[in-house]
Amino acid sequence: MSEELLPQDELKLYEHHTFVVDAGQTPVRLDQYLAQRLTHLSRSRLQLAITVGLITVNGQSARPSTKVRPHQVIQVRLPYPPPLDITPEPIPLQIVYEDPYLLVVNKPAGMSCHPGAGVYSGTLLNALMHHLKQQPLPATEQNAARPGLVHRIDKDTTGLLVVAKEERAYFGLAQQFFAHSVRRRYWALVWGSPQQEKGTVTAWIGRDPRQRKKYRAYPEGSQGKHAVTHWRVLERFPLATWVECQLETGRTHQIRVHLAYLGHPLVGDKTYGGDRPRIPVRSALIGQWAHKLLAYLPRQALHAYLLGFTHPITGQWLEFEAPLPADFAQALAFLRSLTPTSSQAQ
C-alpha cells in the first residue's frame, strides 16, 4: 500500500489521499479499508463521502460495500479546515439565500473567509458562527476551523459564497466543486484594452519561486496546476476595460494571475501590478484620471457576481447574482464620465 499526500500549501480547504492497493490485499469493503488508514475519520463519514463521489476507485464512483482489489487506485478528496477555534462575532452579513442545509452570502471587501496566519477575528466564519448562534457547522473530526466552507474568495474580492450548514450538504457541495459543475462568473476591471473581444487563458498556476505569497502563470505546464479562465469584454473605457470572467477551474488567485499574464492586471491589485497605471501616460490629465480611478478602487477590482449549483439535498438547480459593490460601481461611473462614447459590448 502506498499513499500520496499533496503539499500542504496546495490543500487549503481539502485533504487529498491516493492509495494504491497492495498486491496481496484480500477483498474487503471500501469503507472498512479506508477506516483502517484514515483513523481521524469515522466510518459513517467515509460512507457519506463515498456515496456523494468524493472517494473513487480507479477513477470511478463506488459504494461503501465495494470490495477493494489488488492494484486498484483509491482517491480521497475531503474538505477540511485546520484545528482552530472560531469565536462568534456580531458582524453584519448580507445573506442572499438560506435554508436548513446551506446559505449563500455576499462577502464585502476587506473580510477574510477564515482565520489564518495573523488573522484571528473579523472573518466570514466568525460572522457565520454568530449568525448561526454557535450551531456546529459540518467538519471532519480532526479539523474544526473552517467548517462549512467548500470554496473561498480573496480578502479584497467581493461577492457570492455558498456555505454548508450540515454534513450531507458539506460533502455534496464539495463534490460539485471537484467536478467543476458549479457555475461561477466574475466581473473584473482591468488596465488597458485587450485586443480581442473575448478569449480563453490556459496557463498552469503555481507559486512564484521568488515571492512565496504570490502565484504565477506557467504557460508550458512546467509547474503548478492546470487552470482555465474564459473572459469577454463588457465595456471599454479610455483607461481600463470591464470584463466578465468564467472559471473552468478554481486555483488560488486564478483570475488575478491570468489577467496579469495577459498584460491586463486588475485595477487596484497591489500583488500583481495593478496598483499603478498600466497604460502609456501621455499627459498629466491621463495620469490624474488613472490615480483618481485608483482612489475609487484601492483594492483589486474583482466581484464574484454569479454562483449556480445543484442543491445537494433537494437536487434543485439554484443560481444567484450579486449587484456591483459601491466602490466598483463608482469606478465605472467615473470611467463613463471621461468620455460619452465608451464602447459597450453587445
Rank of each mutant, 00 (worst) to 15 (best):
G172I: 05
G263D: 02
R232T: 07
G206V: 09
F171T: 07
W204T: 12
P194S: 08
K292F: 13
E235K: 04
R278G: 05
T202F: 13
K292M: 14
H291F: 13
C245W: 01
F237L: 11
G268D: 08
L262T: 00
A174D: 06
T202Q: 15
H180W: 09
V267H: 00
R232H: 11
F178H: 12
Y170K: 06
H226G: 09
R278W: 10
V201T: 01
V190F: 00
G268W: 00
F171L: 14
K292E: 13
L285Y: 12
L262V: 09
A304T: 03
Q223R: 14
Q288H: 14
Q196R: 15
A295Y: 08
H180D: 11
Q176H: 10
Y261G: 03
E197C: 09
L189Y: 07
Q300T: 02
V228S: 09
G274L: 05
H180M: 08
H258G: 08
T200P: 11
F237S: 10
S181E: 14
S283H: 09
L259V: 05
L189Q: 05
L262I: 07
S181M: 13
Y305I: 00
Q211L: 13
T200F: 10
H180G: 06
V267W: 02
I286L: 15
S193Q: 15
T229F: 02
